[in-house]
Design a protein around this nucleic acid. Sequence first.
DNA 1: ATAAGTACCTGTACGATACAGCTATCTGAG
DNA 2: CTCAGATAGCTGTATCGTACAGGTACTTAT
Lengths: 153, 153
Amino acid sequence: MSDDHDESTLGQIETEVALLMRFGEATRRATGTAEHRVLDRAAYVILRHLADAGPQNVSALAARLNLDGSTVTRQVSALQRDGLITRTPDPSDGRGTVISPTPAGLQRMAAVQAARTRLYGDMLADWTPEDRNTLAALLSRLNQALINRNRPR
Amino acid sequence: MSDDHDESTLGQIETEVALLMRFGEATRRATGTAEHRVLDRAAYVILRHLADAGPQNVSALAARLNLDGSTVTRQVSALQRDGLITRTPDPSDGRGTVISPTPAGLQRMAAVQAARTRLYGDMLADWTPEDRNTLAALLSRLNQALINRNRPR
DNA sequence: ATAAGTACCTGTACGATACAGCTATCTGAG
DNA sequence: CTCAGATAGCTGTATCGTACAGGTACTTAT
């Protein structure tokens, strides 16, 4: 079954990713909205990316996160309303707006991240460190492959 | 970096899962809706599960897929409208409705599944079979962990 | 036989997202 | 320098997936 076409492995990967998305969403729903509307999906990734890659404008975020610009605009507006990011005019381009995380935003993001990390820690409690590392590495490669496929230019 | 607490690995897994969910959704959008509204997300998993576990009623589907009953009802209605499933009264319970996939539904599901599998095949073209197998196995374990966490009873 | 429980459906609401179209700004060719 | 085209961001509108609350029909236990 591992001759030239390992169909079954690909099929299994497909299945598992689909499952993961279903359960991941359910988990997010259960974890996130518990307290006081902590952070919705896109808001979290946006803050995450800002914390990671520094302040940047809407288009850059949209491209990186594979989202429509309008979606990012709205998410960013909500984040601004909640004081989690600030908009400043891009000094080098009058059309642009630079989005920066506020300390509150970073803190909120870190809190969510910590909660999720804890959750994963619980779930993967009986995994060996090697397996965890392997999973992290392979997921990273999978995402890279996805990125490469979606934006070949 | 792998001392007592491998926080960073957990954090990375968390990040990658979040990213994967974003890209997975984008991929689904791009792949699925291309032709003639092939199959939306939940519809696909529902058909998938029906093909896998046989005809069953709405509550069973909802429980298994971690969805609200009303959501499944609507998805099932849409699937019925499109001729992809049939509803029959449950002979052993007058309240229940048994959902069965139609041949067309199974075919549609298989087509989507094949397309996705092909997509993964493309993306993972340069992976070794070992890496693919490892990814499949680890994802499976991860999902199992998620399931165990979400439904401890 | 009646109360409590269950299965499904419907009304309603919300969040995330996309696409189309708008305005303001930038850039490059003449 | 000017103006046509490109680009950044915003807004209007639509759609989809989902949940919760409430209703109806049926079942089960007492």
